[in-house]
Design a protein around this nucleic acid. Structure first.
Length: 403
RNA sequence: GGAGGGAUGGCGGAGUGGUCAAUCGCAACAGACUGUAACUCUGUCCGGGUUUCCCGUACGUAGGUUCGAAUCCUACUCCCUCCA
């Protein structure tokens, strides 16, 4: 493989933000390997919606592909039956084969928005783990000790705090590591929460006498929109990659200011120089961080949509929130009656969950018709022409009188 | 195998016979402010209703005692600790 100026630049970008590289010199071989390296990346098909938190590592993988390497994308359909105990104390519910297949299909669709399909080998770990015999499994478990297993951060925490750890949970890292033995991976990438599992792959490759041990590269875990906890769907602080441009824009705008640079740094190709410039401007001069956030929002949208979509989202955002106008396309309901019980309509149209909730919102002044707050929850709406009902900050409904 | 402790609303965690739809903190939602930010302040945070009040359901599950149970009893399920 030849080394060009471009690929050196790419390598610089790739290195940005990486947390740990074992061994250090693997970066050198990325540019100087004679044949493509095999980069393993595993995904648990239990949560089929990818978000920008996943993009951090996916972007890095894409860069490696652009340098000429291959990605082994492992769908952990077998290991999903155990559920990675990482950071969790509850057992996950078992997935049916059907779930796994459906999730995996949707995974592929999403993942290939970033990865190059031509340089990706998609594999299912059930194809080799599913046929392991009991004695092979015992052989595998004999390669590691309980004491060392308990070194794993979350195991040790749970152990110390008297939370239960099932024996089968020990199998998760072992099996994930065994994947690397089967796949003969050169490098495995993952978030920092995967460090233990990644090192396990390295350890097992040595144990099984492979002629090489995989390098491991970890990327940071991206904080979610609250700016503190990791981005995750269950914490509802995520921006999904399947979200519409408008949603992406709005969600990005709610990001705390001090995470702007971090997002740029981990999710975009903006140069270090530009990042530094931005940092300076935000801290010293009177540049409003909001403007950088707008730019960030557009960058993120452009990863998955056209520039024009990003611009539209910006327009819409300014329209609705900066100027307090009504969004362009909002749900519409046609009413034939002269007057209608507003709260009932809101429930029917699913803008509120229950009457109680609706009452509370109305009493709190969160519901307005054509800009006029309606505090009485028994309010009967006199239907005429087109009226816009607003619930909270972002729920709208257009009520249209049938002619 | 033996002994003991525990299970409460999205989470943490009070409450140990009536005044408990259940203190408080976090999260969430709404209002004011604003840059849909942060901070701050205020309010809300099971459902239904004839809505300053009434009703239903809810404190692991199923029964029981009682005028009355989250609180007492029995069985069951799950979790934890100690001993072996």
């Amino acid at each position: 493989m030849y080394t060009s100026f471009m690929s050196i630049k790419l390598l610089d970008l790739f290195k940005r933000g990486l947390v740990q590289i074992v061994p250090e010199n693997v970066l050198h071989s990325l540019l100087n390997s004679n044949e493509p390296l095999l980069i393993k990346f595993g995904a648990d098909p239990s949560a089929p919606d990818l978000h920008f938190g996943h993009c951090v590592v996916l972007k890095k993988l894409r860069m490696l592909q652009d340098m000429g390497h291959r990605v082994q994308f492992v769908i952990g359909d077998f290991t999903a039956r155990i559920g990675d105990p990482t950071g969790k104390s509850e057992t996950r519910k078992a997935l049916t084969e059907e779930d796994v297949r459906a999730n995996a299909a949707s995974y592929q669709e999403q993942v290939f928005k970033i990865l190059d399909p031509g340089k990706t080998d998609l594999v299912y770990n059930s194809s080799w783990l599913g046929v392991l015999t009991a004695s092979e499994m015992i052989g595998l478990s004999a390669r590691y000790t309980v004491a060392r297993m308990l070194e794993r951060d979350d195991f040790s925490k749970r152990f110390k705090s008297n939370q239960s750890i099932s024996v089968h949970e020990f199998l998760y890292p072992l099996l994930q590591g065994y994947d690397s033995v089967v796949l003969k991976s050169d490098i495995e990438m993952g978030g920092t929460d995967q460090t233990f599992n990644l090192l396990m792959g390295r350890h097992l490759q040595r144990e099984y006498g492979c002629d090489k041990e995989q390098a491991i590269i970890t990327v940071p875990i991206l904080e979610g929109l609250d700016g503190v906890q990791k981005m995750s769907k269950s914490l509802n602080n995520h921006i999904g990659i399947m979200d519409s441009p408008k949603e992406m824009f709005g969600k990005t705008m709610s990001l705390p200011d001090d995470k702007i640079i971090r997002y740029f740094s981990l999710l975009t190709d903006m140069s270090d120089f530009e990042l530094e410039d931005m940092r300076t401007k935000m801290s010293s001069t009177g540049v409003n961080p909001r403007d950088f956030k707008i730019e960030l929002a557009k960058c993120l949208i452009c990863m998955f949509y056209e520039t024009s979509d990003a611009e539209e989202a910006e327009e819409e955002f300014k329209r609705v929130f900066a100027k307090g106008l009504v969004p362009e396309d909002i749900p519409e309901v046609v009413v034939t009656e002269e007057s209608v019980f507003l709260l009932g309509l809101l429930i029917e149209q699913k803008l509120v969950v229950s009457k109680k909730e609706g009452q509370r919102l109305m009493q709190a002044g969160a519901v307005s018709v054509d800009g006029e707050k309606q505090l009485n929850f028994r309010y009967m709406l006199a239907v005429e022409g087109e009226q816009v009902v607003k619930v909270g900050k972002r729920k709208f409904l257009k009520v249209v009188k049938a002619i």
